[in-house]
Design a protein around this nucleic acid. Sequence first.
DNA 1: AGGATATGAAAAG
DNA 2: TTTTCCTATCCTC
Length: 282
Amino acid sequence: MPEGHTVHRLANAFNAQFIGKRVQASSPQGRFAEGAARLDGRVLLAAEAHGKQMFLAFSGDVWLRVHLGLYGMWRFGGAGLRGIGRRTRKAETDAAFPPAPAGAVRLRLLTKAHVADLSGPTACEVISTEEKLAAMARLGEDPLRADADPARAYAKLHASRTSLALLLMRQDIIAGIGNIYRAELLFRARLEPHRPGRSLSEEVWAALWGDLAVLLQDGVKTGRIVTTEPQHRARKTGAPRRGDAVYVAHRGGKPCHVCRTAVSSEKLGGRTLYWCQTCQTG
DNA sequence: AGGATATGAAAAG
DNA sequence: TTTTCCTATCCTC
């Protein structure tokens, strides 16, 4: 689930339901007992997302930094959080509040009315304001943030001989893109993924950045990654079905939605890259 | 039931 | 470049 849009959605959920509330913090799984103790009893002041990282501000100049990584998730309980985070099963919805932790919950944040359970994060740590600023400074431009400066990202891209496919995943250049948005962004621009960053013109970059912003904003709204245009779907109307939502991501060997060529895939930098050799020649 | 896979990135080599 | 972290889901049997 977690590319940048997911993390912004989660921050929005915290801002909507947890801000100004005193929280009981605990670590049902036990692995974050010390950190939870440091948060326990504080008031949650703000939630902020930058790329795939979320920062929660607590009273007393204490921050929680969370990176979900590949498997991490937040599961919410309580009213007004429908559709955010991992879906709560019906049995859990009907259960008394607060629900029992589902699975290995690293951190539980509990208010009178709401609960947020974090499991499987790559990073979860209590840090100072300085450390929070330092962590943010290591991140690149996030199209979902008002302070994003695409020119800074372009300078880094254009200075590198590394492939666009690898560069787009670098969080210190552009923050928030993951494997799916990378593949889809390159497909929509019809760009060959192995092209070096330095071959990117300013005009093409401007178009890429604009398209990325649209895709991410749409992802924040819907909670889903949809990159196909209706005319490229098997069913032209209504919500895109499974298998119709993206062009190439996770579709290795399957026919391209545009030209029917088998979608290519290869391992690159430890991740699977997907692209269409026929469509992406730019 | 069990294996492959995963929208990530740091650590190790 | 490979290994490791860690949890859930999807697929096949």
